[in-house]
Amino acid sequence: MNNDYFDGLFDLPHEPLPAPASTRLPALRRTAAEAVRAAAAARGRAVRVTTYVLAEDHDALARQREELLAYAAKRGWAATSEHFGETTLTPAGAQLALNDALQYVRRAFADGILMPGRDSIRQEPDAYERTLRRLHDWSGFIEFLPLLRSPAAGLVRHR
């Protein structure tokens, strides 16, 4: 067998393999958020956020929205007067309120969208990545409430 064919094959420049979605997407989300927060600080203004909630019913929407607003206030962020939400009865592919929130950021009415967690966005990883990249292009970000560790309960949402 002639090995000349393989000579230098492994010396060719190559693209590194992409990181798995489980690490790549949170890093992309964090990077965009850090860039937007730094830009707002450089301009001497508060980060402006809107909220998006996907909940079981309208009472849960209101409760989660209040939790998001409290978190924004604690961070020193300015919450916009416009808030977006829908119930879990909304078909997964038709999150119209989420699309409205994204357009709100695109039009620069807010710097970012504050949500309870990743489960608020019912998108497959590829679609979610496109959403994050689109927001990054628009100088926007998505922020989730942090998970706090409790020895008794495991992971629980920020309260």
Rank of each mutant, 00 (worst) to 15 (best):
R134P: 01
S150D: 15
P146A: 07
P18R: 14
E56M: 12
S120V: 09
Q95E: 06
P18F: 13
L28T: 01
I121L: 03
A92K: 11
Q95V: 02
A38E: 13
A97Y: 02
G154C: 05
F84N: 00
L25G: 00
E15I: 13
L98G: 04
A72D: 00
D111W: 04
E143K: 02
A127G: 06
T131I: 04
V156K: 13
A33F: 05
P91I: 00
L114E: 02
L114H: 00
R107C: 07
R24E: 05
A38I: 07
S22L: 12
L68M: 09
D100Q: 15
E143V: 01
A60W: 12
E82A: 14
Y52N: 04
A108E: 13
E143I: 02
I142H: 01
V47M: 07
A73F: 03
T31R: 14
T88L: 15
T131P: 01
L54Q: 11
A70D: 04
R65K: 12
L25E: 00
L96W: 11
D126G: 07
A19C: 10
V105D: 01
R157Q: 12
L17G: 10
A41L: 12
E66N: 10
D119H: 12
Q103E: 15
M1H: 11
A153L: 15
R149C: 12
R159E: 14
W77N: 03
E67F: 08
R107W: 11
V36E: 03
E15C: 11
L145P: 00
L28M: 05
P13S: 07
V105E: 00
F109K: 15
G8F: 09
Q123P: 04
P151Q: 15
A27D: 01
D57H: 11
D57R: 08
R122V: 12
T51P: 05
R106A: 14
A41K: 12
P151N: 13
G117K: 05
P16K: 09
Q64K: 08
V47Y: 02
D7N: 10
W138S: 00
H158M: 08
D111E: 07
R65V: 00
M1Y: 11
E124S: 07
E86D: 09
D4T: 08
G112H: 08
R30S: 14
L68F: 04
G85C: 03
L9F: 07
A97S: 08
D11W: 09
L132F: 01
A35V: 09
L148H: 15
R45H: 12
R149F: 15
P91V: 03
A40P: 05
A41V: 08
I121Y: 02
R107Y: 09
R130A: 06
E34K: 15
G8E: 07
